[in-house]
Nucleic acid binder design. Structure first.
Lengths: 147, 147
DNA sequence: CTTAGACCCGTACCTCACTACGGAAGCAAT
DNA sequence: ATTGCTTCCGTAGTGAGGTACGGGTCTAAG
């Protein structure tokens, strides 16, 4: 027998997890959470499993997983699919590392431009603007799509 | 007298700059580029200034500026507004640095999880999943919105 | 008993940077 | 002259992750 402790409405659930009511409903529509049966003509209630699910989703999002990916992770939860989960984690790790190094490139370029602007110059001439006009790409010649 | 050299159609312009025709037209609608007058019933033509503008936009985007911000940068181009430009650059630099350190946090957490999964364990238990269930936040206790 | 505040539900709207669609008209080569 | 690629122009759709609205129903407090 399951004890039903800490029964909550959607509003309490949402507040407890630190998300909006609409967000919970959105996750339900996305299939990331189930909608509990509603008692005849009444109000649905949520338990700690639902709360745990929300925590799982937010933790995964924090790590950079998209909602689609989170859906995938969730299918791995019921079973001993640790290898698959690790695989997903490794892929995400790779993509995070790529993002970091791209941002570090940007950081170097931007820092250089700002430095050049700070050290006095002709006043009718702005090194930052000049670089933007010529196309920046200082650090690495790296053809790519911006998106 | 202005020599009109390298006169291009929108298609040639776009291809030269490495963007789509629709993208150029989109930038015009956004007010980032002007639309040249069109000769009676004919086809508009674009010169090197238009190309330079496109380069400017793409270089700025590469540095992480949004199209709105680029619009702002462009208003600073005609004049000696180097200080304002530098200010914008510094703000962007700050935000880039914030993104980097957030991603580095994620990298540490994710790496740790993946490592734990790789070193053998009970097989009916997945450290990665367990952490997601409990809410990750290893590295820093840092309340924040995911978006 | 009335009223305030949640909840239920579907639908529409938001941001950002594009991308696609469709019909008319122009231009270049065959 | 015909084919076939561009251009022109407005409008609409995409994806991600929600947020907002509005009308109806429930529940708890006074």
């Amino acid at each position: 027998m399951l004890k039903k402790r800490n029964v909550m409405t959607i509003g309490t659930l949402a507040k407890t997890a630190g998300v909006g009511v609409e967000t919970v409903r959105y996750y339900q529509r996305r299939g990331l959470m189930s909608e509990p049966e509603k008692p005849y003509g009444g109000i649905r209630h949520y338990d700690e499993q639902a709360l745990a699910r929300l925590h799982f989703i937010r933790a995964s999002q924090w790590l950079g997983f998209s909602l689609d990916e989170i859906g995938e992770l969730l299918t791995l939860q019921d079973g001993a699919h640790c290898d698959e989960a690790r695989e997903l984690g490794e892929q995400k790790l790779t993509s995070v590392r790529r993002k970091i190094s791209r941002l570090q490139q940007i950081e170097r370029a931007l820092n250089e431009l700002v430095q050049k602007c700070s050290s006095g110059h002709g006043d009718v001439y702005c090194p930052l603007m000049a670089s933007l006009n010529d196309g920046v790409e200082d650090a690495t010649t790296d053809k790519h799509k911006v998106r």
